[in-house]
Computed example of a mutant assay.
Amino acid sequence: MRAIVISVIALWAGSAAMAVPLKLPDGALDQIAAGLSVGSGNGNGNGNTGALNGNGNGNGNTGVGNGNGNGNGNVGTVNGNTNGNGNIGTGNGNGNGNGLPDANGNMGYANGGSNNIGAFNGQGNTSPTSGNGNIGAFNGNINGGLYNGNGNIGSFNGNANGNGNSHP
């Protein structure tokens, strides 16, 4: 079993820099060596209003955590298209072509928590220390306790942790 930890530093207008450690799932390095993509192409093209917005995002990536959270939350015509495509490596082509970040530094559609990029991240957590700094879709949701569901890349990661515990 091989594991690697990478850090993503997110900067948004009006928010402080946040370094989030990210642990790759078991077997991810073997998949990359085989030319596959892990945690790529998620949370793209959501919550757009108008015509021809949020199309052709997050395609043809190889590596880890590429092409996530692109082309979300746009209003108007022909916005947020063809972002995050054809990346190779780690953490490339994320968070492009989105509407303005919200007051919590989230970019995309239907995100809770803070500093999330993509769609449906950081929702339903019991603490503001959970569900933050995620990239993609459906990450860091429905966590109890503290510091759960943070710093995930891809989809359906870091959900339903730390629930049902009593605290003094």
Rank of each mutant, 00 (worst) to 15 (best):
N48K: 04
N48Q: 03
T49G: 03
T49H: 02
A51S: 12
A51N: 14
A51C: 01
L52W: 11
N53G: 00
N55T: 07
G56E: 10
N59V: 15
T62V: 15
T62R: 14
V64R: 10
G65L: 02
G65P: 03
G65V: 02
G67V: 10
G73I: 00
G73A: 07
G76A: 04
V78F: 06
V78E: 09
N79W: 00
N79K: 11
N81G: 06
N81Y: 07
T82R: 10
T82V: 08
N85H: 12
N87D: 12
I88S: 13
G89F: 11
G89K: 09
G89N: 10
T90P: 00
G91P: 04
G93Y: 13
N98D: 14
G99F: 09
G99Q: 02
P101A: 08
A103I: 00
N104K: 00
G105P: 05
G105E: 02
M107H: 02
G108R: 00
Y109C: 14
A110P: 00
A110D: 10
A110F: 13
G112A: 08
G112M: 01
G113R: 05
G113T: 08
S114L: 06
S114Q: 15
S114D: 10
S114W: 05
N115A: 15
N115L: 14
N116Y: 10
N116W: 14
G118Q: 05
G118Y: 08
F120K: 04
N121F: 01
G122Y: 08
Q123E: 06
G124P: 00
N125K: 12
T126S: 15
S127T: 11
S127F: 12
P128W: 01
S130P: 01
G131H: 06
G131Q: 09
N134C: 06
I135P: 00
I135C: 06
I135Q: 10
G136W: 08
F138M: 04
N139T: 04
N141R: 04
I142Y: 07
I142E: 11
N143V: 07
N143E: 04
N143D: 03
G144V: 06
G145T: 05
L146T: 06
L146V: 15
N148I: 02
G149R: 01
G151K: 04
G151W: 09
N152D: 09
I153E: 11
G154T: 10
S155V: 04
F156R: 12
F156Y: 11
